[in-house]
Design a protein around this nucleic acid. Sequence first.
DNA 1: GGCCCGATACTCT
DNA 2: GAGTATCGGGCCC
Length: 205
Amino acid sequence: MPRLPCAFFARPTQNVARELLGQRLVRLERGQRLAGLITETEAYIGQDDLACHARFGRTPRSAVMFGRPGVAYVYFTYGMHWMLNVVTEAEGFPAAVLIRGLRPLEGEARMRRRRGLAGMGSRAARRAPAPLARLTDGPAKLAQALSIDRRLNGHDLCAPGAVLYIERAAPAPDDQVTRGPRIGLNNTPEPWKSMAWNWKLEARD
DNA sequence: GGCCCGATACTCT
DNA sequence: GAGTATCGGGCCC
């Protein structure tokens, strides 16, 4: 399958976020493919967007967002979680798409192992295994399952030899896509808090 | 299904 | 020092 080229990401962030639904995120890890269908995305667009990490201008953390489109912006939050974004728009304009959800397609066993590590020895580890659809249905969950952390911040998804990239698949049809406000922006002022910049692909079997 | 809470460390004002 | 683009567990319908 062909990989999405840089040109795909060098476009308006809302278009990129919408069109990433249904595409296949691939992580090469120790020679094995871990992959999933992208089921939820979110747009963060420029310094004016007061939910965007670039709202303070160019800082050590946000610098990657000011760089080339098609590059991973991976950041740490809540003291324990990593989040995967892909930089969008022209170089110099800070914007990115947060990947918030996946449906696992390849490497399920290894994803389960990675996800299970945190709960080892706890009551959770003795529970019935999570259903496949719940394994990577959150931004921190998919980062953990695909072994995505600070080592991949700045990684070029378009470069030959990339260990993280996105393969082109059939576009998600409109009747399976819903839009809504972005998640978790509890202290973000309006109108940014309510902008419908979250896109979801309906779970359909 | 829902709500509440604690964990945990890094970010920038 | 305050806030955080989250998650899982515990509890209650």
